[in-house]
Nucleic acid binder design. Structure first.
Lengths: 256, 256
DNA sequence: CGGATCGTTGATCCTGCTCAAAGCCAGTGG
DNA sequence: CCACTGGCTTTGAGCAGGATCAACGATCCG
């Protein structure tokens, strides 16, 4: 839960009451083994799942058996926030390495967001950030070559991990095979391997036992054409604050 | 504005008051010439722009001068709903053919969604639908070949156009060049041309003067591997209704 | 030790890109 | 009315980024 608070705080500070109420939602983290589905396409999960450790991914399987990884979920990300509104999952979510998942009861979350506008805004902001990440991935898949895509992905994960304080000294856990990476980047395993070697030989990254260390963040960013502004950290709209105060006043006249 | 109401109604019916209040927001539609930017990357638009006719796209330009079209905007889509919360646009939006744009004053929209939970839900639903469309596009770009991508895109636009009643007899306006289509599908103009010919020769579509007629929707869907469920029309979560009623009660105790 | 999974390397192939040129309009101006 | 122009489509030929296929080494684990 601390991860979620950190992520939202990157956008807009929460009050200590907000944080306390959020923390009160979370049950005990549950360990999900590597390569296990957390939510499957077509289901309608009864609660929300918060990634509180490890790494997961959204993916779809195709008729021909191939798989496309749509996005990665890092600690602080919520698997199925959208089933607030949508009936069924249109994709699956799986743990990549061993992953910790915290269950948040749907009705309590609904109650919390109905009474705590900053929490509400923070959760919706994370939806918008995810959307921005998806857009950026489309650009990469459509118009960048393999080397750029890989470097970009490593940059993005570095920034997102840093935002939740999971990348000390520019090093973060990346518990996935080159095959997984290929499924995410729209490349073959073999080609991922060769690109990875290039990055290592260029002295930009080191990779050992499921963890990446970015040796030269600036160099890697330059090589990737990476500009973190699409992640919108610290980029709240001026209206958002005013809107929230208005909402807070409307919803909780006694408390304000 | 009628388009937006139709789109939202595909998800959850609005009351006649909701519709009236929405309609009251809209000023006169303004014509934007083809190939003109509506919103540019880096800006922070002061109002919301609703596409009320024609066709627009979100896109990013890359350092090397190439362009990736991220998604298409059909009538009823809102350009910059996310600047509710995010400070700056991380991409641009341009009219493809001549497009009609209606301006919605930000503060009035904020006021409306604060008091009309069904409208609020409908707008957020459209954000979630857009997200689902982005995910599907990632799958296409990462793992489908050129023929599938093109067929899929034509299917998606057909379904979205039908949802806002802009595709009578399976025909809809597609005012863009094959170059634009290539920028959307991650293909070269030349290759789009050849794939298009294949579809025509297969008797699946006809294309003349900026309009596509889908001659065999089932055949095209089969060829594309298209399954419309990701668009989530008519797929509201059961919780959504209960949540909305609770919100409505909380926000407007007098009105309910 | 045997088996499974993953990383690495080399050889070959193919989808789709690039380059180039020619046809096809629609608009424009003489 | 016709020549000219510019944007778009169409076609052909050659090229290349990355896929595919296949094999081998490394590591882990029962």
């Amino acid at each position: 839960m601390q991860h979620l608070v950190r992520k939202i705080s990157r956008f807009m500070p929460l009050t200590s009451e907000d944080e306390a109420r959020l923390a009160a939602l979370a049950g005990a983290p549950e360990a999900v083994p590597a390569r296990t589905d957390i939510v499957r396409e077509g289901e309608h999960p009864p609660s929300l799942f918060l990634i509180s450790g490890g790494l997961a991914c959204r993916y779809k399987l195709l008729d021909d058996g191939s798989r496309q990884i749509i996005s990665f979920l890092v600690p602080g990300d919520i698997c199925d926030l959208h089933v607030f509104m949508l009936g069924t999952m249109d994709h699956s979510i799986a743990a990549l390495g061993e992953t910790k998942v915290t269950t948040l009861p749907m009705d309590e979350v609904l109650n919390l967001v109905a009474t705590h506008p900053r929490v509400n805004a923070g959760l919706w902001w994370s939806v918008l950030q995810e959307k921005a990440i998806l857009r950026q991935r489309i650009v990469g898949l459509g118009r960048r070559d393999a080397a750029h895509r890989l470097a970009f992905q490593l940059c993005e994960l570095l920034w997102r991990m840093k935002a939740v304080e999971e990348a000390p000294r520019d090093e973060y856990a990346l518990p996935l095979s080159q095959c997984d990476l290929g499924d995410a980047l729209g490349l073959s395993t073999v080609h991922v391997n060769r690109m990875m070697q290039d990055l290592r030989e260029a002295g930009l990254i080191a990779y050992r036992k499921g963890a990446v260390r970015v040796l030269d963040p600036d160099g890697l960013s330059r090589q990737a054409g990476f500009d973190a502004s699409y992640l919108h950290y610290g980029d709240a709209a001026p209206e958002a604050r005013g809107y929230l105060e208005a909402l807070a006043h409307r919803m909780m006249p006694a408390a304000n």
